[in-house]
Simulated scan of single mutants.
Amino acid sequence: MKAILYVGHGTRSKKGAEEAKAFLQRVINQVDDAPIQEISFLELTPPFIDQAFKRCVERGATEITVVPLFLLAAGHIKKDIPEALLKSQENYPAIQVEMKDPFGVQDEILDAVEELVLSVVEDISPEDSVLIVGRGSSDPSIHKAFAEIADGLGRRIGTDKVSVCYLAAASPNFEEGLETVSQRTTGKVIVIPYLLFSGLLLSEVIQNVRARQRSGETIYCTGPLTEHRAIEKLFIKQILKDEK
């Protein structure tokens, strides 16, 4: 019997965890390809991968498709999730396990981000500066991916003043990136947190933006990517790909 095991990142934020679970439950309600579907998280938010894997088996799963709810392929996708799955696979060696890819850089996501930006700032000029804020990773492929994201968003929004910074594990860090863009811009500053859900990282971004707004700076910030329903539709599309 087929099962789908969804894997989110996890967060200490109650709001962020609730958003992720609600998102995945909406997905489950729309995916009828597998009779067994379970939600799990890599860290911080239960149920964890081993618990949800066991639940799939107890419900009768003979093959499990692992679907990561991650934007890009970095250390969590290449190392952490496979390692977390390894113990479960050793405990249940008869179970066939396949792991799907994360979102990656896709036009549909960039189109959705453009719409999120336009919902916050209607009049964008070539003088405006955009700061994309990634979660961050030591994996060098992340820098390549964000270079593609920056180029794609710049072309869509109509400015070549697009910078990238990171909240952890990569440079420039968020504080450095925000200060540099604020000093150099001759127009508005538009901050785009490239994150799926609310959480402590997004709160950090929003707090910094609001502090600058109070000081008189013309700066705006979009919400998490899942505020746009295109992300949900794309996630479902990737789940069903090659399954029929």
Score class of each variant (00 low, 15 high):
50 D>F: 03
156 R>V: 10
205 V>M: 04
85 L>T: 00
227 E>D: 15
140 P>V: 05
151 D>V: 05
130 V>P: 00
30 Q>D: 14
15 K>S: 13
17 A>S: 15
235 F>L: 07
83 E>D: 14
131 L>D: 06
105 V>W: 04
22 A>T: 08
132 I>A: 01
168 A>H: 06
178 L>D: 04
71 L>N: 04
45 T>Q: 03
23 F>N: 03
74 A>T: 01
49 I>W: 02
213 Q>N: 07
106 Q>D: 13
103 F>E: 00
169 A>T: 09
193 P>D: 07
94 A>H: 13
201 L>D: 10
45 T>N: 05
95 I>T: 06
60 G>H: 08
243 E>A: 14
158 G>T: 08
224 P>C: 09
218 T>D: 14
1 M>L: 11
81 I>A: 05
136 G>S: 09
182 S>W: 06
84 A>S: 08
64 I>P: 00
83 E>K: 10
180 T>L: 13
243 E>G: 04
105 V>D: 02
34 A>K: 06
63 E>T: 09
21 K>A: 12
184 R>C: 00
193 P>R: 07
188 K>N: 12
65 T>A: 10
187 G>M: 08
29 N>H: 10
149 I>Y: 02
227 E>Y: 13
226 T>F: 04
110 L>H: 02
73 A>S: 14
138 S>W: 06
49 I>G: 02
172 P>I: 01
157 I>M: 00
152 G>I: 08
32 D>R: 14
146 F>T: 03
208 N>V: 04
60 G>T: 14
59 R>F: 07
115 E>V: 11
171 S>A: 13
154 G>Q: 05
5 L>E: 12
220 Y>E: 07
241 K>D: 14
104 G>Y: 02
210 R>V: 10
207 Q>A: 15
78 K>G: 05
210 R>N: 12
28 I>N: 11
157 I>R: 01
78 K>H: 13
207 Q>T: 15
67 V>D: 02
152 G>C: 10
172 P>A: 08
216 G>F: 10
51 Q>Y: 02
108 E>P: 03
238 Q>P: 00
100 K>H: 05
105 V>T: 07
16 G>A: 11
135 R>P: 02
221 C>E: 05
69 L>C: 14
142 I>K: 01
241 K>G: 02
161 K>V: 03
13 S>C: 13
134 G>F: 01
217 E>A: 14
29 N>T: 09
87 K>E: 15
93 P>I: 13
31 V>F: 05
50 D>K: 09
89 Q>G: 11
79 K>A: 06
175 E>C: 04
155 R>F: 01
44 L>C: 06
171 S>W: 08
171 S>N: 12
45 T>H: 01
221 C>T: 11
131 L>Q: 05
40 S>P: 12
24 L>I: 15
69 L>D: 09
31 V>Q: 02
116 L>R: 02
145 A>R: 00
216 G>T: 10
28 I>E: 15
